[in-house]
Every structure is written in structure tokens, then in C-alpha cells.
Write a protein that binds this DNA or RNA. Sequence first.
DNA 1: GTTTATTATATGTTTTAATCATATAGATGT
DNA 2: ACATCTATATGATTAAAACATATAATAAAC
Lengths: 132, 132
Amino acid sequence: MCHSHDPSHPGSSCCSPPSGRMQGFIQPWLLLLLSEKPAHGYQLTEKLNQNEDTKGIDPGFLYRTLRQFEEDGLVKSSWDTKGAGPARRVYEMTADGVEYLHAWVKHIRTTRERLGRFLKTYSLRFNQSDSK
Amino acid sequence: MCHSHDPSHPGSSCCSPPSGRMQGFIQPWLLLLLSEKPAHGYQLTEKLNQNEDTKGIDPGFLYRTLRQFEEDGLVKSSWDTKGAGPARRVYEMTADGVEYLHAWVKHIRTTRERLGRFLKTYSLRFNQSDSK
DNA sequence: GTTTATTATATGTTTTAATCATATAGATGT
DNA sequence: ACATCTATATGATTAAAACATATAATAAAC
């Protein structure tokens, strides 16, 4: 748990805000990357690590997410044994996967609007000016 | 779990997008409401239920969150036995709580920007026009 | 005046997502 | 032969949130 009740830091507490990631944010990025072209897990890790917003992904999470996508019919996989190094499981998007990505984007848009409404209410309370 | 592998719905799957809430979104609303004026849990529930973005809160979650806030020094509480009905535990914000709200807002702004960057990348991929 | 509904707070249990830790193994360089 | 890099995978734990239910005082209805 959090419960960092360090009496020497009376201002510190828990409950998540100055922390990192948000729920279900990696998944749409994965689908978006896969919608561009098929890729295997390691490649996807590297691409995610190039993006400040998605870097540092846990490999366990990545591979499990990809298998879950496959179980859900969003992608399909096949082994690529050609080329150097160990075999790679290459994931390719399905039509359902693209559809699902679009659904996810709708959800992200509404989430973004929701955050905007919160920030607007906050601004009205604390920066009585600043209508943007 | 999700795993709704209903073969009659080949397009349905899980992994959260067309669902509801997002992590840690109620907490800042609670702090914002309390920053306006002290209130007790039931009042806060009613206010949250008036807002499309926050309605339907689970009372268990609400009361536990408020106690957690108090443990973390973000609010302090006292019983109000005056007036009708059962006693109410009234929560009042502390200076640390206000500070924490501001920290949360910073986090929400960066989250919002992150979502914006995702949507922009998505747009470049799918709506080759639309630069906004 | 006993029952029912409303106001109000609280806690035990379960589920779910995500993280942490670790295992496996082929290929390549030294 | 040994270490490193590429690549995938799984077991275990944690943390947030949801689900279910308990308690109790007051107010209204019958």
C-alpha cells in the first residue's frame, strides 16, 4: 500500500496523484502501433520506450496483454523463425482489432473531455480569471 | 474477469475501453468540493450524483476515501449532531489538502496532455487530415 | 405505537489491473 | 566455455476499486 505516514513529511500522503501511469493506456498504444504494421513483442517494447508517454513497460505485462488481445480476437500471431536470434511471435491486427481501437479512441476522447471539465471547474474555483 | 468469449459476439472482447470510470478521478473531485466548503459524506454523494462525470459513486468507496484523506492529513473531521437525522461526520479541508489538490491538478493536466498526444498520433494514422 | 423509509456511516470480501520477480532459451561475440 | 543480447513467458504479490452487507438514528406512514 501507500500509507507513507512519515511524520517528517507532513505534506506527503498517498492516493495516487503525483504518480505515473493511468489505467489502460498502454493497450491503445499497442493497438495503434500494430495497426501500422505487424510486429513482435520486443519490437513493440522498443517503440514504446522511444515514446516518453509509454516508456518503461514491464515485459510481463506486454506479453500477457498481447496474448489477451489474441484471445479476444483483436490480433493474430504466428512464429517468425527466419532471421537472427530466437523465434519471434509476430502479431498482426484483425478487423475486430481495428474496430476495437476505434472504440478505445472514443473512450479516450470522452475521458479527455471529462478531465477538461474537471480542470474548468477547478479553474473557476482557484483562478477566477482564465476562462480557458 | 472479463473474458466474454461469446462466440455469438465475435466483435466483443474485454480490456476496458468502452467501460466507465478512470483511476483516481473521484478523489480530486472530492477534494475540490471540500475546498469550496466543509461537507459530510452524504452531501458529497448528492453533489457527485448531480454531475454526469461523477455520479453513481459507491458509498463504501466514498467513506473509505474520506477516512483515508483524514489519515493522510488532507482533511479533518468532526461530528455534527445538531439538526435532524443521524449524526454526520463533517470533513473540512486542511492546508495540506489544498496543496494536494493542486498537485493532483498538475497530474491531471499532464494526463490530459498525454491523451491528447495519443489522439494526435491516432489522427495522423487514420484521419490523414484534421490537424487538431 | 409499530412498521417502513430515509439519512448516514461503516466494514468485510472479492475482483481486476498492474507490478514484481523470475524462468527459459536460442544466437552471437570473446 | 562463458557472457551478453534478443525474445517470450509465467508465478506471485500488491493496490485500487467494486460488490455486498451491516448498523443505527430519525422521520413519516399506517
